[in-house]
Structures are given as structure tokens and as C-alpha cells.
Amino acid sequence: MSASDEAIIRVEQLTARYGDRLIFDGVDFQVRRGEVFVILGGSGSGKSTLLKHMIGLYRPAAGRIWIGDEDISSAEGEARQRILQRIGVMYQSGALFGSMTLRQNITLPLEEFTDLPPEARDWIASMKLGLVGLAGFEEYLPAEISGGMKKRAAIARAMALDPEILFLDEPSAGLDPITSAALDETILELSRSLGVTFVIVTHELPSIFRIADRVIMLDGERKRIAAIGSPAELRDGAEDAWVRAFFRREAVA
């Protein structure tokens, strides 16, 4: 993996709330260009909330999120469009458009944001589907393929505009271990061959050890970051006994 030291995402003093309920408070971290960065935490610790802030769906209560040198947390209009075209998102359910075939799902952003002729768009769609191992499924509707295939198709769609950063929300949730491992392979392959930066929300330990360069672990109790580092570092050297235990899959009393 080709992680450099250059930060591609900088999260500064991010605070999130739902109404009166504080989710996390003053979170700071950076994601480096080209790395596979995993967001981890118990249920309710705010993993998905953090992700939704990073992709600009939620406005933070306080703090900033820089994608490159632009602030997605306050951008409006064209500046926001510009940032959004640098990122791709795979949602937990896939969120493919149900009335469109896989090809149409992928050509949609191409139609909207490029002047490519239709045959070029179709060609690109087929290539992206091939990249995630779905060559030949262009004319299928999302309802006609399996859950794992939907997630891969959703990654293909997220990559339609060749974004620099891909955000994946629980890619392995609801998948069997073999399909999940295949998906991990896809992620690693894309990371190596295209140099895409990945930000992934997951709590599948085997998957984290396979793919993650660095992990951030959220602490739902204390509303902050519990630990940040490579999976091996956290397993062996985290200050928090609870974090070490989590990585060794021990029950914590």
C-alpha cells in the first residue's frame, strides 16, 4: 500500500450532537493519502455519524472537516459540488437506485457531470463493474442480484467519477465470511492499483487485520477517540486495556 504522509482528510475539533444528545466531542484526526483507514467502535459510539459528517450529509455542531484544502462542513454551492466529486460513498444497504439497471446506476453520475458520449459512458460502466468482479451483470436490476453483489455494485457506482477517496459504511455487514473476504480483496486491489484512499466503518476484526493501515477507535462512553494506530499497534500497545482486549477478541468485564 502506498500511504504517504500527506493528509488528505483533516478532522479538527469535530463535535456532533443529535438534539441534546452529545455523540462525540472535540475529535481530531487525519487520514493520509492512499491509506485504508478504518473507523471502529461499539454500537452507538457514533461511527456512522462520524462518516456522515465526513461526507457532508450532516453539519457539525462545532469543528471542521477538510477534504484536501476545502472544508466540506461549511461548503455551499459549487465548492460543495467540487468536493463531492472527489469522494465516493458506499452506503450500508448499497442504496442502488432500484428502478435503474446496474449500468444506469453507474452511468448516472457520468451523464450528470461529464460530456462523455453515451457509448463511452457504457464502456466505463462495464469497466467499473469488471473491477469489482461483476462483469456481465450490466443489465441486471438491483433487486435481481445478491446482497454481496449489491455492495460491490455500490462500490462500482461510488467509483464512477474516479474519486480520490472512497467511504464505505459497513461493507461486510450482513455478508457471510467468504463473501466478506472477497470484498476485502476487492478493496485491497483497488487501493493498490488505483491508489484510492479508503475510509471504512466496520467492526469485523478479521477484515480489519486484513485491510487496515490505520484504525481509529471511538469511545462511546467518553465521547472521544479511544485510540488511533495500526491494528497491530492497538492490539499490543494501546494505553487503554479495553482497546487491547477488543483487538484480542477478549471479553471485557
Binding site: K52, L57, Y91, S93, P109, E112
Partner: peptide
């Protein structure tokens, strides 16, 4: 239904 399926979120983050 699109909202429930996160499809609206997907449109938004695609810049549509």
C-alpha cells in the same frame, strides 16, 4: 422509500 433506503443520501453525496 428512497429516503429509507439511503438512496436520497446517495444522490446528495453524488452531488445530485
Amino acid at each position: 422509500t428512497m429516503k429509507v433506503n439511503e438512496e436520497i443520501d446517495a444522490l446528495t453525496t453524488m452531488g445530485l
